[in-house]
Simulated assay, not measured.
Amino acid sequence: MFVRTVYVTGDPTKIDTAIRALNTEGRELLEERPGYRGAGVFVDRDLGKLLGVSWWETAEARQNSDEVMRGRRDALLGPFAGTLTVENFEAVVYQPLQPPRMGGGLRVTRVEFDPADADLVAETFRSTVLPRLETLPGLATTGLLIDRERGTGQVGTLFVDRDSMVVSRAGQAAARHEGVAKAHVSVVGLEEFEVVHTDVHVG
């Protein structure tokens, strides 16, 4: 599958307005597009950060949908958005284990690597990191998104509740340390979000 992320920062007091817009009109617009496979909305209410993620059957479907969504983002995100960044990725690993829950937690690890090492990064995640992550209590879903041309990626770990996410920090840190060493990856960001909505169909 292919993924588009929309990363927005703004006034924390206005974030609920953006959430409502994405969960109503925004979701309706996405569901109308061919090749749509699901979406998620994740927030950090304290700092005023919002991460929107949409999933697509093909890169072409993702691109075609962006032509529609690009013209609607300013209106949907309204007074909240101070900055907005859109990125595109390939989902090279996606492992659902149990249904996520609203109010759960998402940890995002942002990475950079030599584009020539893209396959090494994917294989290391599958063989080394994924088996360790799957042992973490409360893990709902995990996956690796990469941009092969730019040499950037994100590891997403979704937990059924915030307590499970907090408890997992040491375990995931150990898995991250091992994976980084084997795959020649640099970690450039580590963030945690509240799950507002997520629904992805992979079948």
Score class of each variant (00 low, 15 high):
V200S: 02
D163K: 15
G35A: 04
E192A: 07
A122F: 09
E192D: 12
A174Q: 12
G143D: 08
Q154M: 12
T141R: 10
L145N: 13
V188G: 02
A122C: 11
G10S: 12
D46H: 08
P96G: 05
E112V: 06
P137D: 13
T124F: 02
D44N: 11
S54M: 00
S168L: 06
V121F: 13
A59D: 01
H177A: 13
R27F: 09
A181G: 11
V196P: 09
H184R: 14
V43G: 00
D161G: 14
S186Y: 03
L120W: 05
V180T: 11
L84P: 08
V68K: 07
A91E: 10
T135C: 13
T24P: 10
E67S: 08
T13W: 07
R20H: 13
F42D: 00
A39I: 04
A61R: 01
V167D: 09
M102S: 07
E32T: 08
E60Q: 07
F42L: 02
F89Y: 15
T83L: 03
Q95P: 03
E191R: 05
G10C: 06
D147I: 04
T5I: 06
D114S: 13
L120F: 04
F159E: 15
F2V: 01
I19A: 05
P99Y: 03
M1R: 03
A61T: 01
V195M: 06
F159N: 14
R73V: 05
L84F: 09
D147P: 11
E31K: 15
E25N: 05
E178R: 13
H201D: 08
G151V: 06
L22P: 03
V200T: 07
R70P: 01
G10E: 13
A81W: 09
A174T: 14
V92D: 03
D163A: 15
A175S: 08
F42E: 00
V155W: 11
H197K: 07
V43D: 00
L50I: 01
Q172K: 12
L76E: 01
E178C: 04
L144Q: 14
D74N: 08
V111K: 04
T17M: 05
G143W: 10
N23V: 10
R132D: 14
A181K: 15
E112A: 09
V68D: 02
T135S: 15
E90N: 12
A61F: 01
T83I: 07
E31C: 09
D16C: 02
L158R: 10
F159G: 14
G179P: 10
V3D: 06
L190P: 04
N64M: 04
L84M: 15
L29K: 13
Q98F: 01
V195K: 11
E31G: 08
D74Y: 07
R33V: 03
V41A: 02
G153R: 10
A75W: 09
L29H: 11
L133K: 06
N23F: 04
A75E: 13
F80R: 03
A18F: 03
R162S: 13
K49H: 03
R45C: 01
R148H: 06
A174V: 15
V8F: 08
V53M: 02
G38W: 00
G10W: 14
L47A: 09
A181N: 09
E134N: 14
H201C: 07
V41C: 03
L130I: 12
V185F: 05
T13N: 10
F113Y: 12
G48S: 02
D11C: 09
A116C: 06
V196W: 02
D199K: 05
V111P: 10
